[in-house]
Design a protein around this nucleic acid. Structure first.
Length: 215
DNA sequence: CACCAGGCAAGTA
DNA sequence: TACTTGCATGGT
């Protein structure tokens, strides 16, 4: 019975990968940039995040020391395109404070830490929730953890692999309990789910008929 | 015009 | 515990 689920998850991955190819996530020049992007992208599209990050680069302030020292209202203006810019400026600052206090601002020092201990620490930062924490862990410091988002729950509950209204942990367990902990595959799988969701599963999207998962 | 995008925390009952 | 609401820009 469980074997069927494993096979189904593998098949879906294969179909997505064949249909869309590797997505090459996460765009970013450094682990720090990826982590900043993880907070900026909350409930927003990547194009807007890209603009905000370009603003930070153009201002030569994309470093923890510069950003931590910058007044919140000034940071907020630079990240304006992402929306929710006031609250996200605070969230970034909370995260920087955490990074400075616990790791001397050095992300390399996080890598040694136990995965689930580190996850718990990240979740203690106000503004870092489960998806943001897992995105940081998988995409910034290459830990084997599966990232869940709204698309993941929608698509996999419709395919009856998780119950309707399954929570984050339950959805994550579907993948972590039934797939080998392969960092590269987790990376692509989540990105492919997002790609599928964006292109085929939006409300009012007539392309649903062409969905690669359709039988 | 409506609706959505790679969420999260705080408030309410 | 389980809903609801605020946060806000930019694309379709």
């Amino acid at each position: 019975m469980r074997g069927k689920v494993k096979q189904k998850l593998k098949d879906i991955y294969k179909k997505l990968y064949c249909a869309f190819g590797p997505q090459g996530w996460w765009p970013g020049d450094s682990a720090f940039e990826v982590m900043v992007g993880a907070i900026l992208t909350q409930n927003t599209n990547w194009q807007n995040v890209s603009r905000a990050i370009n603003n930070l680069k153009k201002d030569k302030s994309l470093s923890i020391n510069k950003l931590y020292a910058m007044p919140a209202h000034e940071l907020a203006q630079l990240i304006r395109p992402v929306g929710y810019y006031n609250i996200k400026a605070k969230r970034l600052k909370n995260f920087f404070a955490f990074l400075l206090k616990n790791y001397k601002g050095n992300i390399r020092q996080m890598v040694k830490k136990d995965l689930f201990l580190l996850r718990k620490e990240l979740l203690s930062v106000n503004g870092v929730g489960e998806e943001t924490a897992d995105s940081m862990l998988l995409y910034a410091i290459k830990k084997p953890i599966f990232v869940v988002d709204a698309y993941t729950r929608r698509i996999f509950s419709r395919h009856k692999l998780i119950p309707e209204g399954a929570d984050y942990a339950q959805t994550q367990e579907l993948f972590m309990d039934n797939l080998k902990a392969d960092i590269k595959m987790f990376n692509e799988y989540h990105a492919l789910i997002v790609k599928l969701g964006k292109d085929f599963c939006r409300k009012q999207n007539p392309r649903c008929q062409e969905c690669p998962l359709r039988d």
